[in-house]
């Protein structure tokens, strides 16, 4: 990549943030530890990302173990039901043996659910849910509706299909995070050029979305897909062959460029016939 990426290692202290406006508060994301009053220490190796517009700062790196954080859409498995809630497991991508943390999904956390009309989930059901509460010391809480509209918006039980794991970085990329960070980089460079009084020159940033595999698959196959930020992906199509083809393409495309992803899908489709 032609862009300068800021790679940081654990233990490094970040230089003081350059503020465009004085006295703004920054939100500190994963991979950084804040020591008051204003020191930031890197706690996870990866790329440093600073979003000056949203005033956020975080480290980006790939991992396999999922740590719950609020508002993440995840794919969970129902373990059992209690008087007023389902106890769920949040499996991470960690294959072959899934490690899981537990979460609570209240019976009433479904759109328009009442005590009588709540959906019945059995042990081993798969749900697509949003984490409504994530706290370090207690089990996270889940919700199966959109916070703004109160409607399901795709959340809820996932019926049929197959669930498999990918790395957390891959899951984020499939959800479109890669494009966001790339746009961010371009913006950073523009701001930098602006400060120096130079004109911004396009250096041919790789603006691929990182999820060409899905775009290409979606053009010729029909299937449903849900990506959880915990590194689990649910694929459903009528035919096991198609589902397996989608699964393999996604799993193999992790380290491929956009072009290679398209090539991979084309070959897979040819083999599928």
């Amino acid at each position: 990549m032609s862009l300068v990426v800021q790679v940081r290692f654990p233990g490094e202290t970040l230089p003081p943030l350059e503020d465009e406006k004085k006295n703004t508060t920054f939100k500190v994301g994963p991979g950084l530890t804040h020591i008051s009053p204003s020191t930031l220490i890197v706690s996870r190796a990866g790329e440093l990302n600073i979003d000056q517009r949203k005033h956020t700062i975080w480290m980006e790196s790939n991992s396999k173990r999922y740590v719950a954080s609020q508002n993440d859409a995840i794919i969970a498995t129902v373990l059992r039901s209690t008087a007023d809630s389902y106890i769920c497991a949040i499996p991470s991508s960690n294959s072959p043996v899934p490690s899981a943390s537990q979460a609570v999904l209240p019976h009433l956390a479904f759109p328009q659910a009442t005590k009588k009309t709540r959906p019945v989930l059995h042990q081993g059901s798969v749900v697509y849910a949003r984490i409504s509460l994530a706290n370090k010391h207690i089990d996270p809480e889940l919700e199966c509706y959109d916070a703004d509209s109160g409607k399901s918006e795709g959340f809820g039980e996932l019926k049929g299909g197959f669930v498999f794991g990918v790395s957390l970085g891959m899951a984020r990329r499939l959800l479109g995070d890669a494009k966001k960070t790339r746009l961010l980089r371009v913006r950073e460079r523009k701001a930098e050029a602006g400060r120096k009084g130079e004109e911004y020159q396009d250096v041919g940033v790789d603006m691929s979305s990182g999820r060409e595999v899905l775009e290409e698959l979606g053009e010729s196959l029909s299937f449903e897909l849900a990506v959880g930020r915990n590194g689990r992906i649910w694929v459903h199509s009528g035919d096991p062959k198609t589902t397996l083809c989608v699964m393999r393409c996604i799993q193999q495309s992790e380290f491929l460029t956009g072009k290679e992803q398209r090539q991979l899908v084309k070959e897979a489709l040819k083999a599928l016939g």
């Binding site: 498995t77 043996v97 059901s125 798969v126």
Partner: peptide, 13 residues
């Protein structure tokens, strides 16, 4: 404990 395969995985496999 290992999590048992989900209903979806089971029927799909």
């Amino acid at each position: 404990r290992e999590i048992d395969p989900t209903i979806n995985e089971k029927s799909f496999i």
